[in-house]
Amino acid sequence: MSWAWFHRFGSPPYFYRLATRWVPWLSWPAGVLIVGGLFGGLVIAPADYQQSDAYRILYVHAPTAWLSQMAYTLMAVAAAVGLVWRMKVASAVAAAAAPIGASFTAVSLVTGMLWGQPMWGTYWAWDPRLVFQLVLFFFFLGFIGLRSAIDDVSRADRAGAVLAIVGIVNVPIVHYSVTWWNSLHQAPSVLRAQGPSMPASMLVPLLMSFLGITLYFYAVLFYRTRAEILRRDRGAAWVRELLTGKGKTA
């Protein structure tokens, strides 16, 4: 058993080629699954007996909310790997993941608000999950803001990594405190996705949409990481080879 695979991942040209090969393999299934899931969810699935058609925003809201939290974890782990093992590709992944994570968080917030209007009668309620999403959004903004304030890429990577690690340590504490705060102030929220009691015609599109949006996330992540690697290695020999002697990898 060797760590060769780990070091191979760490090599920018290797990762670049890998990402190039993977982007179409992720994008096409993602597209198919999202279209299928949305069609199933918005057209085929029956209306909910309590929420009628309003629940259908779940097909977008739940996957983006889950991915936004996964994106933060992934970003923090990648940044930490970049910091500890000085693996530039990992730092590039973290840098590429942040804006995607922020966008997914924003989408989940907006869809949550749109869902809240018919359900709660208001766009914004101080529901702990909404508040937590909002805090997560600020964590992403802080990471992006700090990175962009530092000119030197390697310094930005490491400062961002420290922030992301501090953030991920604090996520459970923030989550706990927000839940604790909420339990004192108002009754738990109205909505809860009915897990097992959900009929298959609702569940299957939801799973498709989950999987599709997850694949889409990775497709965009690989795509952005490719660009990030090129930008960082623009002076390197392999990039110049790639640009002049093209065709081999594309």
Partner: peptide, 22 residues
């Protein structure tokens, strides 16, 4: 983290205030 960043004051609050929620 914001040491040496010019006009880092706003950034500093963006980094610290979410952490201070608990």
């Amino acid at each position: 983290l914001t040491l040496g960043i010019r006009r880092g004051g706003a950034l500093l609050s963006l980094l610290v205030l979410p952490l201070a929620i608990p």
